[in-house]
């Protein structure tokens, strides 16, 4: 049924000439070198052309996530956690000690957006969550990265009633997962029916994040520098 369909219209592949000249190694090397060179130029060109958009996309994504987990925030700053407190992070990018601070319209500090990650049911779940140090509450949670089972585990971000568990959640003594519909205390989270493991993973990851960050964070971030000062 599947005879090779390839040799039909043309016949250049038939019967190679009896004497084949072996091309010199220089010819082989130069062919590959030229191909590599042209390819390299093309790749650099496309990289340069798209770099700006890609960086902007990533920055916008992060900004949107921070605004989402910290309601009422309209400005964000990168903080760098160091041994003796926090400072603004001036340099590009981030490392494992980078967190985000959110400020409202008036430029007053609102809270922190803290990243945390840990194993879920399938793969690592990466989370960004909003934390208000004054009231010691989690006020929002966004899943940045997850490969949880579609239809079940992915409810940790698709099921809005689960996500809303984290809108006003006390972290003391620690966040606990309970069976759906039994929520009674401020530090409890309703698990998703059929996705208990993923729900528990989210809570565990946030608890781990709290353990890591909270005792090192000052209650009132760093005041926003005066308007007009460089970003």
């Amino acid at each position: 049924m599947t005879e090779p369909a390839d040799q039909r219209p043309n016949s250049t592949n038939e019967a190679p000439p009896p004497v084949v000249m072996e091309p010199s190694s220089i010819r082989l090397i130069s062919t590959l070198a030229i191909a590599g060179l042209v390819s390299g130029i093309a790749i650099v060109a496309i990289y340069e052309a798209t770099l700006q958009t890609i960086t902007e996309n990533k920055a916008r994504e992060l900004r949107e996530a921070v605004f989402k987990v910290l309601p009422g925030v309209s400005k964000m700053k990168k903080f760098q956690l160091e041994e003796n407190g926090i400072r603004f992070r001036a340099e590009e990018g981030k490392d494992e000690n980078t967190i985000y601070g959110g400020y409202n319209q008036q430029g007053e500090f609102v809270g922190y957006a803290l990243p945390s990650a840990g194993p879920g049911f399938q793969d690592t779940i990466g989370i960004l969550y909003g934390y208000i140090p004054e009231s010691r509450k989690v006020v929002g949670m966004e899943i940045l990265e997850s490969r949880e089972t579609p239809g079940l585990g992915d409810k940790i971000y698709k099921d809005l009633s689960f996500v809303s568990n984290f809108d006003n959640l006390s972290i003391d003594p620690e966040i606990v997962t309970i069976k759906k519909g039994m929520k009674s205390a401020a530090n409890e989270v309703d698990a998703i029916t059929g996705a208990t493991i993923s729900s528990k993973a989210v809570v565990r990851i946030i608890n781990e994040g709290n353990e890591r960050w909270i005792n090192q964070l000052p209650t009132y971030g760093i005041p926003l520098p005066e308007e007009g000062s460089p970003e």
Binding site: A35, S39, A42, I46, T50, T53, I54
Partner: peptide, 19 residues
């Protein structure tokens, strides 16, 4: 090399336009 070049082009284009 030719194929990989085209793949890289489409990879960056998608990343920029449809993240």
């Amino acid at each position: 090399i030719i194929i990989a070049t085209f793949v890289t082009i489409i990879d960056y284009t998608l990343l920029a336009l449809f993240p």
